[in-house]
Design a protein around this nucleic acid. Structure first.
Lengths: 253, 253
DNA sequence: CGTAGCTTTGAAGATTTTCAACCTTAGTGG
DNA sequence: CCACTAAGGTTGAAAATCTTCAAAGCTACG
């Protein structure tokens, strides 16, 4: 009983191997459990820019953890165009939407050379039914993804182009920071077009906004390199755009 | 072993009591399991139009199953406005996004007199770690919610007002049908404003679109009563709006 | 019957998209 | 080493869609 809960440090070490920080950091796992979790993780070869992690329609076997690099997930329009539905940074898990159908409902492609780990879901499920805290952690993980999507949804249905881009940049910044990178300076691994697709804007609109934010002294933009100069100002734009265009209902009571 | 898997019929009967068709129908549960599942469900009193199921910030204890009626979930803007993030029909489960934070991240209010069941999540989790198929079903449930959100996200970032409304109506229609109601004729329990908020459109735009779809012979609209007259045409609008405004990327390979 | 709330409709205004041209960067091959 | 090309990015002007503001109509409910 005394050593039932392993220290965070030990978990971190164990997880450094499996890149499962996301999964196992906040749990109380025994060393034994960690070992078993570690045993089911497969490290895949590094993927090159443009390679697919999985494609829409592929049978579902694994969840994937982004170890390094960036992954975009997207759906295809009937006319062959891509609709970006997410960008995924190191430590994030993708493929969660496929559990339901046993088929991947979108495609995932790496935006730069990336390392991706595989998590065979059947094994994970088995393990979860033995390790209660792992089960709980998985529920939380799925729930978190739902929260993220809901937030994004709320963003897209409410806001102006400016608010969308500001929110997008702050979100990216936060995620970089959580992963131990600089909060106010980072590289965009995606193109203006991909950002536009994700935010529901034309690529020209994205470009113009970058220019404007730079003119206003809020950002420094140099192609894909972004520096946030005035974070507070950016945060204001993210909440209330210049001319507040309100699609919200006034409370009815 | 012979009677390990209970028949669908028996499950249906058991579930009629607890409105858990969504949860237990596709599973292989023993009669014993069903009983245990049934035992943790609490039937709440009927809620009146405008009552809250839960509010943003409430501590998370239960998931909720809509038994009859309609529920809207929404977040509040700083300025007091409401941003609708979902409409929920009988058989659907709400509160899934709160697992992660132990707090509800949005509010839920019924749009008409509704019956809502409570599912204490702690109990559900305990049960899931004993019943493997229940665990699996819960994972699927959460995954499905993610898929739904992703689809919605894809819709909002891509499309024109017309495409959004057409998709919205087809989605509602499908969900009505799945629940055994008429597919081409139903009542909207939400206002134009709420639809607009959900779809990211001004309420006037929604109203105008209803008028136009009626003029085109695609719908019959009479306040909240909707009849779909030309489903195929509506489906075309949902995929490719009149003047295809494309925020999609052309595939780069 | 009258008021309150929702819906419809019109016209003006704003934001965003589209089309088009041009610029920049990086990579390739002569 | 330089010119050339392709891809991505920027910028401008016109066009379209959607929102906003305003007013009037309809329904329901007390």
């Amino acid at each position: 009983m005394a050593s039932r809960i392993v220290s965070f440090e030990k978990i971190k070490v164990a997880c450094k191997n499996c890149t499962l920080a996301t999964l196992c950091l906040p749990m109380g796992l025994t060393p034994d459990d960690v070992e078993r979790l570690d045993a089911i993780v497969k490290r895949s070869r590094p993927l090159q820019k443009g390679d697919h992690v999985f494609r829409n329609g592929d049978p579902f076997h694994n969840l994937y953890v982004v170890k390094t690099g960036t992954v975009k997930t997207y759906t295809e329009s009937p006319d062959g165009g891509e609709q970006v539905v997410g960008f995924h940074l190191p430590g994030e898990i993708i493929g969660l939407d496929a559990i339901q159908t046993d088929q991947h409902g979108c495609s995932a492609r790496v935006l730069e050379t990336s390392a991706i780990c595989e998590l065979p879901f059947d094994n994970l499920e088995d393990l979860a039914s033995h390790i209660h805290s792992l089960q709980h952690q998985l529920f939380r993980l799925l729930s978190k993804e739902i929260s993220r999507d809901t937030e994004m949804l709320s963003l897209l249905s409410k806001s102006t182009a400016e608010e969308r881009l500001a929110t997008f940049l702050l979100d990216l910044s936060k995620r970089h920071q959580q992963r131990g990178f600089a909060a106010n300076e980072f590289f965009l691994s995606m193109s203006r077009q991909e950002i536009g697709s994700y935010l529901g804007l034309a690529l020209e609109t994205v470009s113009r906004l970058f220019t404007r934010l730079q003119e206003d002294g809020i950002l420094r933009v140099e192609r894909k390199h972004i520096e946030i100069l005035d974070r507070d100002h950016l945060a204001v734009l993210a909440i209330k755009p210049a001319g507040s265009r309100a699609n919200t209902c006034q409370a009815s009571d």
